[in-house]
């Protein structure tokens, strides 16, 4: 058990130091990483940064009214250039210590299989988390929660509804 905690802390320290070392580069969204739109289904997750070992006891909910959701392209989990500013606003807020943390909720539209969309929603949430971490937010204060296609914002069945439903929502706690 102690070993586990030690490993986890080690990871957090490692993450923070990497973030600090690469800080200058990551203050601005990189067009290569977050702005390009050249990979179908491709997503940009920089590194596999571990999540909390267990989700029991983590905050389950937060305030979703503070920040606008990040929108995604079809079958993509890439944070686009136009959307990057939304993530930066959240990073700034958290870096000022105004909240304990955030749950990034990843959603998809109704097309495709439910289980696949669950994984896709998680990748969207992880891409946002990864960007937040690159902006200096501590890894342990960013939780991800994929809701797949289970909780659409818009119940419609057209392109307009689907566009609204492919989103990453910030629940601040």
């Amino acid at each position: 058990m102690n070993m586990k905690i030690f490993k986890f802390l080690f990871f957090v320290v490692l993450t923070v130091s990497i973030t600090t070392l690469t800080g200058c580069r990551s203050k601005r969204p990189s067009a290569d990483l977050y702005g390009s739109d050249n990979m179908y289904g491709g997503s940009i997750i920089d590194d596999d940064i571990q999540l909390n070992p267990d989700n029991m006891g983590l905050p389950m909910d937060g305030d979703r009214s503070l920040f606008a959701p990040v929108m995604f392209a079809y079958d993509s989990s890439q944070v686009n250039r136009e959307e990057a500013a939304k993530v930066e606003a959240v990073a700034k807020y958290l870096n000022k210590g105004k909240a304990q943390g955030v749950i990034v909720e990843g959603h998809g539209d109704e097309r495709g299989s439910r289980e696949y969309n669950l994984a896709l929603g998680e990748r969207r949430a992880l891409a946002v988390r990864d960007y937040l971490i690159s902006l200096g937010v501590e890894a342990s204060s960013v939780q991800t929660k994929s809701l797949g296609e289970e909780m659409p914002e818009n119940m419609g069945h057209d392109e307009g509804a689907w566009r609204m439903n492919r989103r990453g929502v910030f629940a601040i706690y």
């Binding site: 999540l51 989700n55 289980e115 994984a119």
Partner: peptide
Amino acid sequence: SSHGGLNASGAVSPDGKSMAVILSRDGNP
């Protein structure tokens, strides 16, 4: 299964001993 992140699509093996599952605990599903 209740690791950090996604825990989904649990499927138990025919001998009942093991479960195939999709997790994002290491940073990616």
